[in-house]
Design a protein around this nucleic acid. Structure first.
Length: 490
RNA sequence: GACCUCGUAGCUCAGCCGGUAGAGCAUCUGACUUUUAAUCAGGGGGUCAUGGGUUCAAAUCCCAUCGAGGUCACCA
């Protein structure tokens, strides 16, 4: 039967239902007394074949109709639940309505709870209401929705058809809630800063550009909230604050990159980056415990142990361990570049020593860091917002945390010297980057804010989507984003 | 952006050494009073992503386009 026929068949049934008991789309409420799980839990003790005289009202989507409607399975946001209709003894109106049910309809049922001889908790329907009619059929009941494109373009279908999708997205949302609660409990204030920026700062990435009509000027979707968050700390809104929200980067898509993604950024005055290491471990471990009851989390064929503390290793030290190349001994960029070339890492000419270290690290080390590892001692040249060590001026007081080869956290002792910050920005603006990259703008408002006096502080960013992937054994970032970015179809 | 793979019924898939399209689920008709992916019998349902080419003949081979996935590149 063609799709149009399916639509007209279901529409015809809707008309009949409307004749019988009114238009379902006019219904505004249903007094649901129990969720599917609540029913199953409450009557757990029933023996097979045992009946009760206790009535419940349940509601959900019709997932299966067996034995001509004798058994109907509904799904709500907790579980599936079986409904029984006595095809011989039920009221004729009920049976008439039952015959008009389709897979996917939303129904409300009132009836007595029993356990069938086969052991299934079941509601013997005495009342049936169609609360909403599905005019389109659901995906195949056993194999579900497999087509990746369809799953992401029509997440509602995927959610109905694929238990794993429900679990993954729920876990992601619970994870975000757990992180918020963790920080609330420690008196961090959750704040909001602009999504629309006059210039996109706080990171290096290509921004999305839009235009404000009334102001007749370009605006950029933020690539990071960092600079505004620091300004809030400077102003004294709170010495401990955070934001969990979206950032946007106009770059390539990959299993680890979505154009919009969620980041957590935390700032705390009067602490250094080592406090952010502790906080990173605490937050991530807390999330693992909350979702899995243990710090050890399965990912693919690996087991990742989030139990603190995690090892800290220098970036140059790691490069040495994995390649034998000691970049500390080659501080001249030309020599460093030649040495990198020898071990098969070619770099653009004109890169700084720090950029070469980062490139070699990215090619030779990154994907080997499976268990949580804090990479410390990052080059100052690639850390324009971080304080350097007084006794090691080319090394930043910064770390990046890697898990499963992915960067999931990035933090530093925040640079608060406005003169030094201006110099770093200028250096940044001159640094060699991609051929079509726009020049890095200098955010004078931010420098002015620093000049107003920023307390020493630690700042931390955690990629929520990637953390979500780790916590849900998801190979693609799209699994943990309800509606990942897709190309438009005609 | 480059390369590889994929796109067949509403869904899940088969068919791909060229010969005019199949199965299961869903759907329709009938049977069935306790099913658990219910079962049994029968029926209907297709622009084989789109466009072009080769050929007597194309779902199948070739080219282009669109969409998707992957790898790489890009990426604080």
């Amino acid at each position: 039967m063609a799709a149009e026929d399916e639509l007209s068949r279901r529409t015809a049934r809707l008309a009949k239902i409307t004749e019988l008991c009114g238009d379902p789309f006019f219904i505004t409420k249903f007094d649901k007394t129990h969720s599917a799980t609540a029913v199953k839990t409450k009557f757990e003790g029933l023996a097979a074949g045992e009946k009760t005289d206790q009535s419940v009202s349940v509601a959900g989507r019709v997932m299966a109709i067996r034995n001509n409607g004798m058994f109907v399975v509904i799904l709500d946001d907790t579980d599936r639940l079986q409904i029984f209709h006595d095809l011989k003894a039920s009221a004729p109106e009920l049976l008439e309505l039952l015959a008009l049910l389709d897979l996917g309809d939303i129904i409300g049922v009132t009836g007595l709870v029993r356990r069938t001889p086969r052991g299934e908790i079941t509601v013997d329907a005495t009342e049936l209401k169609v609360l909403s009619k599905a005019l389109e059929p659901p995906p195949e009941k056993f194999h579900g929705l497999k087509d990746v494109e369809a799953r992401f373009r029509h997440r509602e279908q995927d959610l109905v058809a694929t238990p794993r999708t429900r679990e993954t997205l729920r876990a992601r949302y619970k994870m975000v809630a757990a992180i918020r609660q963790y920080l609330y409990d420690r008196e961090f204030l959750e704040v909001e800063t602009p999504m629309l920026h006059v210039m996109a700062g706080g990171a290096i990435a290509k921004p999305f550009v839009t235009h404000h009509n009334a102001l007749d000027m370009p605006l950029y979707l933020r690539i990071a909230p960092e600079l505004h968050l620091k300004r809030l700390v400077i102003g004294g809104v709170s010495e401990k604050l955070f934001e969990i929200n979206r950032c946007f980067r106009n770059e390539g898509l990959s299993p680890k990159h979505n154009p919009e993604f969620t980041s957590l950024e935390v700032y705390q005055a009067y602490v250094d980056f080592t406090a952010m290491i502790d906080l990173t471990e605490a937050i991530v471990h807390h999330v693992a415990l909350m979702l899995h009851g243990t710090g050890k989390v399965k990912f693919g064929d690996k087991e990742i142990d989030f139990t603190p503390p995690w090892p800290r290793k220098g970036m140059v030290e790691l490069v040495r361990e994995h390649t034998g190349l000691d970049l500390d001994a080659l501080t001249d960029p030309v020599a460093a570049r030649a040495a990198a070339q020898k071990i098969g890492v070619s770099t653009e000419p004109g890169l700084s020593w720090g950029q070469i270290v980062e490139t070699v690290f990215g090619h030779k080390v990154e994907d080997k860091l499976i268990q949580p590892t804090h990479v410390i001692d990052l080059p100052k040249e690639i850390s324009p917002l971080s304080k350097a060590w007084p006794d090691r001026p080319h090394v930043a007081q910064r770390f990046e945390t890697y898990v499963n080869g992915w960067e999931i956290a990035n933090a530093f002792s925040e640079l608060n010297d406005p003169r030094e910050q201006r110099a770093r920005f200028l250096e940044q603006a001159e640094q060699k980057r991609g051929p079509d990259d726009p020049p890095h703008p200098i955010d004078e408002d931010f420098i002015k804010a620093l000049a107003f006096g920023m307390p020493p502080m630690g700042g931390l960013g955690i990629g929520i989507d990637r953390l979500g992937m780790l916590m849900t054994d998801s190979a693609s970032i799209r699994e943990v984003i309800a509606f990942p970015t897709m190309r438009a179809v005609d």
